[in-house]
Computed example of a mutant assay.
Amino acid sequence: MKKLEVKVEFTVFDDVDELTQEDKELMFKAVETRKTAYAPYSKFRVGAALLLENNEIVLGSNQENASYPSGLCAERVAIYQAGAQYPSQKIKKIAISAASDQNITVTPIPPCGACRQAIAEYEVKQESEIEIFFMGETGKVVKSNSLKDLMPLLFDKSFLL
C-alpha cells in the first residue's frame, strides 16, 4: 500500500478591490452577466466571464429549463461559446459570481462538478492552465491557478485510449 498526498493552494482576497485591475474588470463582467441568468426554478443566478489569449471576453449566465437536467451552468455556457466562436484561442482566466434571489451569498461559490469537468477538458486541450476566480454575491474572492487545484485527479482523454 502507498499513500497519495495531494497539495492544493488557493489565494483568498478579502474583496474584489484587492484584485488586479484586469481581474477586477473580469469579475465585474461576471457580476453584470449574472443578472442575465434565467433561473426561475432555483432562484440561483451565476455569471461567468472568460478572458481569452486574444483579449476577447466571452460571457455566460446560467439558463434553466423546466426539465432540470436540460439547463446549463454559466461556466459551460461561456466555455462552449468561446470554443464555438474562437476555437483556436486559449482561455486564460475565468471569473465566476453567484447570487441567490432568496438570501445574500457571501461565501465564494466554486464551479459545480460538471463545470469543473468542462474546464478540465479545455485545460487539457489547450495544454495550459486556466486561472479561476470565484465569489458569491459579495465578499471574499478565491483564486485557483488551475482546475487541477479544484479537481486534482482529473478524468481526461488519456483514459479513453
Rank of each mutant, 00 (worst) to 15 (best):
Q85P: 08
L4Y: 13
E75W: 03
A99H: 04
K29F: 08
G136N: 01
Q63V: 11
E56Y: 08
P110W: 11
V141Q: 02
Y80M: 15
L26D: 05
D101Y: 01
L50G: 05
A99I: 08
A78G: 09
L72C: 12
Y41E: 13
R116W: 05
K92R: 14
I94C: 01
I109Y: 14
I96C: 07
P69K: 06
L154F: 06
G136P: 00
S67D: 13
S128L: 14
K157A: 10
A82M: 01
A82E: 01
E137N: 02
L52M: 02
E75A: 02
K93S: 12
K90N: 13
V46C: 11
K90R: 13
Y68P: 09
I109H: 12
G113S: 09
K148R: 11
S67F: 10
D17Q: 07
S100A: 06
T33A: 05
K2V: 15
M27K: 01
T11R: 13
L72E: 15
E64K: 04
Q85G: 14
A95W: 05
G136W: 00
K2G: 15
R116D: 11
N103L: 11
K35W: 01
S42E: 14
A95F: 08
D14Y: 06
F134M: 05
K3P: 13
N54Y: 01
I94F: 02
R76V: 15
E56D: 12
R116K: 12
G83M: 09
Q63K: 08
V16N: 10
C115A: 04
Q81C: 06
D14K: 07
C115G: 03
Q85E: 15
V141K: 00
A48S: 03
L72H: 05
Y80W: 14
A49D: 04
P108T: 00
F44Y: 11
A48H: 01
A48T: 01
I57K: 11
K24Y: 11
K157V: 03
Q85Y: 14
S70P: 02
S61T: 10
D156V: 02
E123D: 07
Q117P: 00
K3N: 15
V8A: 12
R45F: 03
L26W: 05
Y68M: 10
M27W: 01
F10E: 03
I104L: 07
M135I: 10
V58C: 06
T33R: 00
Y80E: 15
E131L: 10
L153I: 06
P152L: 01
V8G: 10
L161N: 08
E75L: 02
E123K: 04
E131S: 12
K35P: 00
S158V: 00
I119G: 05
Q21Y: 11
N103P: 00
F13I: 09
Q89K: 10
P111H: 06
V16L: 12
T36I: 01
R34V: 00
S100V: 05
L153Q: 05
E25H: 08
I57Y: 11
C73S: 11
K43S: 12
D156E: 09
L59N: 10
G113L: 10
Q63N: 11
F44Q: 11
R34D: 01
P111G: 02
L154I: 07
I119Y: 06
L26I: 08
K2A: 15
P87L: 09
G136A: 00
K43T: 13
S144C: 03
K92P: 05
S100E: 02
I132R: 00
L153R: 05
E64R: 04
Q102C: 12
L150W: 05
L4C: 12
L59Y: 10
T105C: 06
A99Y: 03
F44E: 08
